[in-house]
């Protein structure tokens, strides 16, 4: 197991190196530069030259890349050209928001998707199965931002039940020691703030969780259909175990295996979906930050932010692989 983990972690090095070259070249291939974005109509050829010089953008690309690698290796991700805040401090502020949102979305997807898939399988071919299929198709095919707008219009503007923007009511005076607002509410013993953070999470989490929900539901359904025809399930039934025990102990547990893999693989999808969701809900996370950075041609933010997200995705996938082994002891990671 340890060898497997170390090998996977070592693999991170070439992945990140390759990715850094890709991102570095990609953002420089985009037309224009941060100078024009910063100054808008006021950008004169001299001021553009001055800013390019200040940020070293006038040097050959390999020189720029080498400097970037050197500073990044030293733990310095640079400073945002647009906001002038360090990339590290911005990640520190925004990453907890995105993680909180992604976890909430995943929780929503699993809590709703698992039973949906399970019952669809149990009523294979019936009305419930058909309904869940339709719901899954809608979940997968509806663009996140469109769903987000509909949810906001219905639950916030029309019904006034939930807030439309941000992570917390700005009238609440509450500290944020960890940056995870739910946790902060609990740590500070402020249940009003905790509940308020939940309210702010609900709609973005539903919007972001819609695609994973559909996928979880479909995979669960397929897995349950597979497992319930296995010999050991038939044996369990023949032994006279109650249907509930058979389902819980034998069907669901074994069906969870592919589902857990899918859940892990959704992390990348969730992070990319967060770009749209966070923008629509003015949710101050990594997604909305990177989106603004693309418009601003904010090179340090894009380089640092994307690299960071890549590390997260790779690490989560590693965790998924490890958990795979834990859920199913038959799989020996060490032997791989």
């Amino acid at each position: 197991m340890l060898r497997f983990v170390v090998r996977r972690l070592l693999l991170l090095v070439p992945i990140l190196l390759g990715l850094s070259i890709l991102v570095f070249c990609w953002i420089r291939a985009l037309p224009g530069s941060p100078a024009e974005s910063l100054l808008g109509e006021r950008a004169t050829p001299e001021s553009i030259r001055q800013i390019r010089q200040q940020y070293g953008l006038d040097r050959p690309i390999y020189v720029q890349y080498w400097r970037y690698v050197k500073t990044t290796a030293g733990g310095d991700l640079g400073t945002s050209i647009a906001s002038r805040r360090t990339v590290k401090s911005e990640i520190g502020r925004r990453f907890p928001a995105t993680i909180e949102l992604a976890l909430a979305a995943m929780l929503f997807a699993v809590v709703v998707g698992l039973p949906l898939g399970f019952f669809a399988a149990k009523h294979h071919g019936g009305a419930f199965d058909q309904l869940s299929l339709v719901l899954s198709l809608i979940g997968i095919s509806m663009p996140i931002f469109f769903l987000a707008l509909i949810l906001k219009y219905a639950f916030s503007v029309r019904l006034g039940w939930l807030p439309t923007v941000g992570r917390q009511d700005v009238l609440l005076d509450v500290g944020h020691p960890t940056g995870f607002y739910l946790l902060d509410g609990l740590l500070e013993g402020n249940m009003v703030a905790f509940w308020d953070a939940i309210k702010h999470l609900m709609l973005p989490a539903i919007a972001l969780g819609s695609i994973p929900l559909a996928i979880v539901a479909r995979i669960t359904r397929a897995a349950v259909l597979d497992v319930q025809n296995e010999d050991y399930v038939r044996t369990a039934r023949a032994k006279g175990l109650s249907p509930l025990v058979v389902d819980n102990r034998h069907v669901l547990r074994n069906a969870l295996l592919p589902v857990s893999t899918i859940v892990g693989l959704q992390v990348g999808l969730l992070l990319s979906g967060a770009v749209l969701t966070e923008t629509v809900f003015a949710f101050p996370g990594m997604g909305s930050w990177l989106q603004e950075a693309i418009f601003n041609r904010d090179y340090p933010v894009l380089q640092g932010g994307i690299l960071f997200v890549a590390i997260v995705v790779v690490l989560v996938n590693l965790l998924v692989d490890i958990s795979y082994g834990l859920i199913n002891p038959r799989i020996r990671l060490a032997g791989r």
């Binding site: 439309t164 009511d169 700005v170 923008t279 629509v280 003015a282 101050p284």
Partner: peptide, 20 residues
């Protein structure tokens, strides 16, 4: 006076409509 950053135009309008 509290200033709340909302970069999306539609989101600003909706926040005004809901009284946020």
């Amino acid at each position: 006076v509290i200033f709340r950053p909302i970069s999306n135009n539609a989101a600003r309008l909706q926040a005004l409509q809901t009284g946020e």
